[in-house]
Simulated assay, not measured.
Amino acid sequence: MSQTIDGPRLPAASGAAKSLVVFLHGFGADGNDLIAIGAEWRRLLPDAAFVSPHAPERCMASPSGRQWFPLTFRDPDERRRGVVAARPGLDAFLDAELARHRLTPDRLALVGFSQGTMMALHVGLRRKIPPAAILGFSGMLVSPEALKTEATGKPPILLIHGDRDDVIPVDALFAATDGLSAAEIPVEWHLSPGLGHGIDGEGLRQGAAFLAGALKPRRTSLRSTSQD
């Protein structure tokens, strides 16, 4: 990922960002696909700034859309190669956005959809300082066997999937939870009945509540001293 990436942003509703939520869109979409979720979540997350970058590559399967890496569905190793190649550019973007808001890396939350969930899990679990949370919709965990040696932390994770998903079947949800659990990384999950490859209202509600808890402002404990 050599190209500079960018995308639509929403400032914190409170006026001063205390956390950063980054949306990672799916294959063939772009950053405009998810930024509207940020507008919906601003009331529950007033201190969060939102950004939804466009993936760096044009998508051959959808020329008006973008991709984090190519997918032919013919090579079983292409997802692994794809997330590895795309990671440095996304990491650099995340660092730049955190610096823009003068935030520490632990105030970051990653929200992915489909291919964006692959990126959120791969990158988020390997950042030097883990993010505050990872939320994934309709995605999958790439190369779960590598987590035991490559994961750098255990951030809170919530995975949400539709039980009628015919693009990334629901089996991917359970494979991801099994892979994360094998690496001793706690994960919560929610199955949306009747939902295909998408995000429903209940998923949005649960996702927002999950992020609100993970991004809750830290309390600073003060030690009182007495003078004789």
Rank of each mutant, 00 (worst) to 15 (best):
V187A: 07
V170C: 11
A208D: 11
K18F: 07
R126A: 00
P217T: 11
F174P: 03
F27P: 01
P193L: 11
L180E: 00
M118F: 07
P46Y: 08
S221L: 15
R80D: 11
W68Q: 07
S224C: 11
F210Q: 05
P169V: 10
D95C: 11
A212H: 08
K128M: 09
A49Y: 06
R127F: 01
E78C: 03
I168N: 01
A29V: 04
V111K: 02
L125N: 00
L211R: 00
L71A: 04
V187M: 04
W68V: 04
L158D: 03
M60E: 15
A85D: 07
A176F: 05
V21C: 02
V170N: 08
L98I: 00
R107P: 02
T117E: 11
V22K: 02
G207E: 03
L24G: 03
L71M: 10
I168L: 06
I5N: 07
P144A: 10
G112Y: 01
G15T: 09
L135W: 00
H101D: 08
G203S: 10
E57A: 14
K148S: 09
F210A: 06
M1W: 10
V170I: 15
A86W: 04
A209E: 15
E97Q: 14
K128Y: 04
A85Q: 09
D228N: 14
D91W: 06
I35L: 13
D178F: 09
A208M: 13
V21L: 02
V167K: 05
F113M: 08
D171H: 10
T149W: 02
R102W: 08
W189V: 04
V22F: 02
T220S: 13
E188A: 12
R126S: 01
I199A: 06
L191F: 08
A172N: 10
L222P: 10
L147K: 03
Q67C: 05
F73M: 14
A151H: 00
L125W: 00
F73N: 12
T152F: 01
S138I: 11
Q3K: 13
E78T: 07
H161K: 09
